[in-house]
Simulated scan of single mutants.
Amino acid sequence: MATRSSRFHYVKSRFIPELTVLHAQMSDFSYDRHAHEEYAFGVTLCGRQDFFSGGEFHRSPPGHVIQFNPEEVHDGHPGGESPLGYVMAYVSPASLEALFAAALGNERAGGYRNSETLMSDPVLRAAILELVQLVTRGVGNRLDQEHALYRVATALVQRAGQCQPGGPARRADALLLRAKDYILAHLADDVSLDDISQAAHLSKYHFLRLFRQQFGITPHQYVLNCRINAARNALEAGAVPSDVAIRFGFADLSHFNRRFKRIYGMTPHQYQRSVIN
């Protein structure tokens, strides 16, 4: 629970370890800008979901679908006066590669990226809600959940109407890969902007300009985001929150708690209790 009037509940799939579902109710909470390593598929249930993504602001009314590609920066908060309720399924790219390739009929199209963030699509909405229900109830078996996930992938591809592969890496994409590789190798270190820009083979000025222009957050925010994502994985594996804080470069547990809560709506300890039965 984030506050008296905002609640967050995470459920990990019993059958697909790389699949996590979030049930959220929000009225006085706002996410910091961040990015997940997974694909995210969500449905707004009640209220209105306002968020930034892809360089623009979106407003999602009840029944609309929200989809984020891996590493896509976004934030979020309730819009209007009514409380916001929504569900979101987070799925690792590895779990979707074969499903996207099968849906597209192209074995090399596993790295599919959807160009739409906010959609009104009853078929896609129904597929996401079915997946969420299966994970939340813990019913069926792995095949049932994989089939529901395949329905999500198929509905997304059919909506696009054609394959939209990533294609050759652009300069900004290559920048992110070089910078991310360096950051992930030094999560516990006190890295500087000079360190990261040199790893990306750019001057500090050009690095800052291109990074912010492409990703919508500063390198400092991105470093924190990578540390939080790595810390989340460690928590799910059962690591002690205080040890995780030190391992991934946070000053102390209090600092870790504050940063984690601004992205996941709850403290690391609360998150760990939610996903580990």
Rank of each mutant, 00 (worst) to 15 (best):
V135K: 08
V135W: 01
R137D: 11
G140V: 08
N141M: 07
R142A: 14
L143M: 01
D144F: 06
Q145T: 14
Q145I: 12
E146K: 13
E146A: 10
H147Y: 08
H147A: 14
H147E: 13
A148S: 09
L149W: 06
Y150R: 13
R151N: 08
R151E: 12
V152K: 09
A153K: 04
A153L: 08
A153Y: 06
A155N: 08
V157L: 13
Q158D: 14
R159S: 11
Q162G: 05
Q162V: 14
Q162R: 15
C163E: 15
C163K: 04
Q164A: 12
Q164V: 10
P165Y: 08
P168Q: 14
R170I: 01
A172L: 04
D173M: 11
D173C: 03
D173P: 00
D173N: 04
A174V: 07
L175A: 05
L175H: 03
L176H: 11
L176R: 13
L177N: 00
R178C: 07
R178T: 07
A179F: 02
A179D: 07
A179L: 09
A179M: 06
K180Q: 12
K180A: 10
D181G: 14
Y182P: 00
Y182E: 09
I183S: 05
I183K: 00
L184I: 03
L184V: 10
H186M: 09
H186K: 13
L187E: 02
A188F: 00
A188E: 14
D189G: 05
D190R: 09
V191C: 09
V191K: 05
V191G: 00
V191Q: 01
S192C: 05
S192W: 02
D195P: 02
D195V: 08
I196C: 06
I196V: 15
A199K: 02
L202C: 10
L202Y: 04
K204W: 01
Y205H: 11
F207T: 03
F207R: 05
F207K: 01
L208F: 05
L208Y: 02
R209N: 09
R209M: 08
L210G: 04
R212L: 04
F215Y: 15
G216Q: 04
P219T: 07
H220K: 10
H220L: 04
H220T: 04
Y222E: 01
Y222K: 04
Y222R: 00
V223R: 01
V223L: 15
C226H: 03
R227W: 07
N229L: 12
A230D: 06
A230K: 15
A230M: 14
A231C: 15
N233Q: 15
N233C: 08
N233S: 12
A234I: 06
E236Y: 02
G238E: 11
G238N: 11
V240C: 08
P241S: 10
S242R: 15
D243T: 10
V244G: 03
A245Y: 00
I246S: 13
R247N: 06
R247F: 01
F248T: 09
G249L: 02
F250V: 10
D252W: 03
D252H: 09
L253M: 06
L253C: 07
S254E: 15
F256E: 07
F256S: 01
N257P: 07
N257F: 01
R258T: 12
R259K: 11
R259A: 10
R259L: 11
R259D: 07
F260V: 11
F260A: 03
K261R: 15
K261G: 02
R262C: 02
R262K: 12
I263P: 01
